[in-house]
Design a binder for these strands. Structure first.
Lengths: 254, 254
DNA sequence: CGGAAAGTTGACGCGGGTCAAGGAATGTGG
DNA sequence: CCACATTCCTTGACCCGCGTCAACTTTCCG
């Protein structure tokens, strides 16, 4: 299919790390212009992935990191029982596949929730580039280190917080992530189902549904299926007040 | 105190990465002999830390990774409310401080549970070394990536598992970690209090205590304060059967 | 020896899981 | 464009796992 590769080339001309609006959130953050161009050379860009397509699955040979340019992903793993644990949601500018570097296979799976454009970064070429660009190496470590901090924040949430606090924290996290992408802090669409939210927060789907209803009754937000408008962010913040780790509020500053 | 630095020098002669029995679990894993010697040169080794001493605290300027050579650490963070979430326990051969690399301060605190010898690895020198030793860079990524997988395993445990399953999984994890350090898989001392265990597993201290009693009644183990003997590992395994992620059982293979 | 910290055990109650039923939105084939 | 199925979401009723409170014992340490 020769037409396909031509389409790809045309796309490549238009899209690069240097003109990507997300570069400040993504790997290029803090790199010099020429370093970004080097990085850009190893990025593979493909046709958009459709909902329910997998970027990779747990157990697959792991060869690449993936940066999301648009859309939304869900990362999860599966137990031998067959039940699923949602590990996180990936928004534009964020990376997935970090957990595949330690033993050659991915430990989790990543599936598309909303049609997504994704940049693929082969480990091997990334590694080579890291030896020549110290800044890239440092930035990669930062991203990975931040991932660890985020996961540890989730441990706190799951270990200590009530259902109410968990949902409030979840909504505020989404809100601040949308904000740093230039979107509304108060009105957004949830890319994921109640099922996914409940699974992620360690709650039954019915509990999530009831909490949305209760939050609406309490005039904290309005919600209609996946459309959410946060009405009283201050009170939502108050609910999770003192529930986030000190010196760990990375999400809210960036 | 000139005698002090002499003591250190003598210790340095005796202890190095190349003769460390933990090198296979630690950063040197997979490195060549000469690479290990390079790594060894940047390691700072200090006097043992005593129980209740901090290796670092959340919010401190972060400058180093730390590798535990003996003893045991607890890593935790604190909310603004003042309550604590235990994030993990560090045994010999394991690293702490990975979460400090992304913004120059540690996101968590690390405190000594049992008198510990610790090797300090300054980020800056480690970074330099990574550009010349590709193997070290790769190994560092592996360690970090594994940390992410481990944390995500905990998310599953906290999100989906009953109190019983959590404690069983915790004991089995300790058992396998002791095994890979050449210690008994069945008889060991817990380096941490019931408080710490409960906090880590998202359970009340009373629940932990009751579960130990119940496990003992069920002939799964014997326990006397911190001395534990796992009597029926097979049944303990059965309890967490299907509760661990597929393709994620890193702990049990190494 | 005295006080504190750590651990155990029992009684009780609530947060949130489970089960069940039904409505609303979306997809599918005729 | 409609009938039907399916998925997603909501709401109510029930109840159990585990947190909370309290009392007591044992160990630790100055």
């Amino acid at each position: 299919m020769p037409a396909k590769s031509e389409t790809l080339k045309i796309a490549d001309i238009k899209i690069s790390c240097s003109n990507c609006s997300l570069s400040e959130l993504c790997l290029p953050h803090g790199l010099s212009g020429s370093d970004i161009e080097e990085l850009d050379k190893i990025v593979k860009r493909q046709h958009p992935y459709q909902p329910r397509q997998h970027i990779f699955r747990a157990g697959d040979q792991s060869r690449s990191l993936f940066a999301v340019r648009s859309g939304a992903l869900k990362t999860y793993c599966t137990t031998e029982n067959g039940d699923e644990q949602v590990l996180g949601f990936t928004l534009p500018g964020e990376l997935v596949g970090l957990d595949g570097m330690h033993d050659g296979t991915y430990a989790s799976s990543s599936i598309v929730l909303e049609t997504a454009s994704v940049c693929e970064l082969p480990y091997e070429r990334l590694e080579d580039l890291c030896t020549s660009l110290a800044g890239l190496n440092r930035q990669l470590m930062r991203v990975v280190s931040k991932e660890i901090s985020t996961d540890q924040g989730m441990l706190l949430l799951l270990g200590k917080r009530t259902a109410e606090e968990r949902l409030a924290a979840f909504l505020l996290s989404l809100s601040s992530r949308y904000t740093s992408r230039g979107l509304s802090a108060t009105a957004f669409n949830l890319p994921m189902s109640r099922q996914d939210i409940g699974n992620y927060l360690g709650l039954a789907i019915e509990t999530v549904s009831r909490l949305f209803a209760q939050f609406q009754k309490d005039k904290l937000l309005t919600v209609n299926r996946r459309q959410v408008v946060l009405v009283d962010i201050a009170r939502l913040r108050a609910m999770v007040e003192g529930c986030v780790a000190r010196d760990c509020e990375a999400d809210s500053h960036r």
